[in-house]
Design a binder for these strands. Structure first.
Length: 342
DNA sequence: CAACCGTGGAC
DNA sequence: TGTCCAAGGTT
């Protein structure tokens, strides 16, 4: 016996599903391409649909299949990902594509457990791919589901302690039939009506049975632990030119901006020490501000016309679009002038 | 398990 | 302007 809320949600989704490039229409018996589902799910991790759209189009044009992606150069994939953030996703994307080709005959595994063994695929993404691309009744729990379920059940326990309760409620509502549509229906509901601020309960297909709404506490759910303040860090970034060439380096594969194209920098900390890649009359151009997940950063931008053998990095032609946003700001400051000064 | 890991848009 | 937030994963 299906929960009546599952029925109401399915009917709502049939009429209100968002049309997205990686989706098939609601009720479509032909499942979408697992490669496209996987790619979209990884891109959508902690990232908005609006931000993902162009990147998804670019990736599927450059690399239409998992074989194409697996054969791509690391630097090409990192460059294509530049600006989307959380660059470990791009590194794991490549690892995963290559594992699918070398260990799974070029086909994504069709079970949650097998998907979970692949790089960059965690509990949410494994469940989402299993449900959407393979029709398996996996319990898909993402931020939308957490919010919708917390409100539906008026769950007052703060996250992350509330996860078991939330998962139990989500499991109650997960159908055997068209589980992929159901998962996307909850996410669409969370993205369009049951939003973090000012939810549109008047249009919600689940408003009737929503305990949070009945008690007048929906908008305050889910409760979350207070966030820690971001410390300030600062440092120097060095933009050196040799004719049309720029001094660039690839950042170490782990850690912040790992594997990305970058300009040399000093260490970043509370009290920055200058550490240029070579001795020269460096000229201060200005400063750029940038906020990462867990700290604020101010970089003093230094520039010089150059020497041929720096201590680190290489002189190379530069595609500014291949830079992560922080270094894009520094590049814009040097090439255009005063736009990004702090 | 809590810390780490980007970015741009909304308010 | 600063804060919060978005289809999380890894260590």
């Amino acid at each position: 016996m299906r929960d009546p809320r599952t029925e109401r949600l399915a009917a709502w989704y049939g009429a209100n599903a968002r049309d997205l490039p990686w989706r098939v229409p609601p009720g479509d018996p032909t499942p979408p391409d697992p490669y496209r589902v996987w790619l979209s799910e990884v891109m959508l991790q902690q990232t908005t649909v609006a931000a993902v759209r162009d990147y998804f189009a670019r990736f599927t044009t450059l690399w239409p299949t998992v074989h194409d992606l697996a054969a791509a150069e690391d630097a090409a994939v990192m460059a294509a990902w530049a600006g989307l953030g959380y660059y470990a996703r791009a590194r794991n994307l490549l690892k995963c594509a290559r594992a699918v080709v070398s260990d799974h005959g070029g086909r994504f595994p069709d079970t949650e457990a097998a998907l979970l063994t692949l790089p960059g695929i965690g509990p949410y993404t494994a469940a989402a791919i299993a449900a959407i691309a393979f029709g398996r009744p996996a319990v898909v729990v993402d931020g939308n589901v957490e919010r919708v379920m917390a409100r539906l059940g008026a769950i007052q326990t703060p996250l992350p302690a509330a996860k078991p309760e939330i998962r139990a409620l989500a499991a109650c509502l997960t159908p055997e039939v068209l589980p992929g549509d159901h998962a996307q229906a909850v996410m669409d509901l969370g993205a369009t009506l049951c939003t973090p601020r000012k939810p549109t309960c008047m249009l919600c297909p689940l408003a009737d049975g929503c305990e949070g709404r009945r008690l007048g506490v929906a908008e305050s759910l889910p409760r979350k632990a207070p966030k820690v303040p971001k410390p300030e860090r600062s440092g120097f970034v060095y933009l050196a030119r040799l004719g049309d060439l720029w001094l660039v380096e690839t950042r170490p594969a782990k850690g912040l901006l790992g594997g990305m194209l970058a300009f040399p920098t000093s260490d970043w900390g509370a009290h920055p020490a200058s550490d240029p890649p070579f001795d020269a009359p460096w000229r201060e151009v200005g400063q750029v501000r940038h906020t990462f997940t867990h700290f604020h950063l101010t970089l003093t931008v230094m520039t010089a016309e150059t020497r041929a053998n720096p201590d680190r990095g290489n002189f190379a032609p530069l595609d500014p679009d291949a830079l992560p946003t922080l270094f894009g700001k520094a590049h814009a400051l040097v090439t255009q002038g005063s736009a990004a000064t702090a």
